[in-house]
Design a binder for these strands. Structure first.
Lengths: 222, 222
DNA sequence: ATGAAAAAGAGAGCAGTGCTCTCGCAATTA
DNA sequence: TAATTGCGAGAGCACTGCTCTCTTTTTCAT
């Protein structure tokens, strides 16, 4: 099993997510293709294995980075979290694509196995926001939402449910801003990893990333 | 050729990007597989065709939406642009994934065919920022970048080149914020389309999107 | 140690894929 | 009318996921 996931990981980084082939893995293992079906029920199950594996490694690295920062340094925790995400993504573009790119066709990750490791980053992020909110209050540094867009529809109920499920103190506005910064973080990382900025547009993506982080900090009041 | 792209588009929306099969398209056309190779050199070329097709449709809809707004209403133009992007993405998730998801394995879009239509949205977005900057100046509504993160490395040179190539008036800070909002926009759209928020977390994604837009407006000073 | 049970792998085979080749028919053009 | 060109058919190669049966190896209890 370990051999299969190890070779699978290698194939992932070399050939990409959707080109993952059980037969090729079997060849590398010195086995015939049918033999690996003893251990892995299908290609989808192998994908799930690799998804969980990737989520876990990303989560471990993010947690380790955040743990290095003093508990009261909320802004510092935010920065190292974001940098840990980017570092992992740049180092492992194929596995990043597996997690945050287009869903693999015909494959739907089973929620019961992937939601746990798949939510580690956002849970760490939310904890940082909420700790800062509890420590400093609202802070007053947040640029105000433009008037004329009150939360409508089911959104307030959703936010209340999220606050309860995750045991948050943050108000609606901060939760909304938190999800925005969360999605923005992966948006800018995806743009860099997937080459959406265009070839050679930014010769120093890390510098651009740091500038973006500085703005995102102010968005969420850190 | 039109039939091929049409059927290809249909297959795209039904089966997804990487599952695109020339043989299946040939079947739907009542042809044998080798016959379509008269018109399309390879599967990759068909993908390029569909990529350009999708970029063009997205660009057309964005441009049409922006053109409906009064030239002086820069914030309104920004909002309708963002909504047009989201609307198209939600309506065409498979084609959106083809453009903004993980790159299809083994396929590299030829720049000379895709960069033109592929940059229409960002060019429209940059034009909005820059028009607003020219009309209102810096505005002073932008929350300041936190101290300690001056632009370093090659970034200032890159920004200067971009300013010249696109004929911009905006200063470095606004260009950086513009790219951030650009990436953030596609980040939040991707999260919604690719289901990264989690099943049922937000029952009204459009409301969340509107809240995010309101914050993004303030990020770029609109 | 022996014999039964379980595990592991081999091999064939089915249906599908991208793609290349040759062959034949049909339409167009000189 | 004759030649050229365009278009489709069909076979074939190497690949994929996956299922089936068969054989070998290992494990374990007696």
């Amino acid at each position: 099993m370990e051999d299969i996931t190890r070779i699978g990981r290698e194939h992932l980084v070399v050939h990409g997510a959707a080109a993952l082939s059980l037969r090729a893995i079997a060849r590398d293992l010195g086995l015939v293709s049918s033999a690996v079906y003893r251990y892995v029920k299908s290609r989808d199950e192998l994908l799930t294995l690799l998804v969980v594996d990737a989520y876990t490694e990303l989560g471990d690295e993010v947690d380790a980075a955040v743990a290095e920062v003093a508990p009261s340094d909320h802004a510092g925790k935010f920065l190292v979290l974001a940098r840990a995400v980017r570092r992992w993504a740049v180092r492992e573009p194929a596995r990043y694509a597996l997690l945050f790119g287009s869903p693999v066709p015909g494959y739907h990750a089973p929620a019961e196995q992937t939601t746990g490791p798949g939510t580690r980053v956002i849970r760490a992020l939310v904890r940082i926001y909420d700790d800062a909110y509890r420590a400093n209050g609202r802070g007053g540094t947040l640029p105000g939402i433009m008037p004329g867009v009150p939360a409508e529809g089911m959104l307030p109920a959703d936010l209340a449910r999220i606050r309860e499920e995750m045991g948050l103190a943050a108000d609606d506005d901060l939760i909304v801003r938190g999800t925005l910064v969360w999605a923005s973080l992966f948006g800018i990382v995806s743009f860099e990893v997937f080459g959406q900025y265009g070839e050679g547009t930014f010769s120093d993506p890390e510098q651009l990333f740091e500038q973006h982080l500085a703005v995102l900090r102010s968005v969420v009041g850190l």
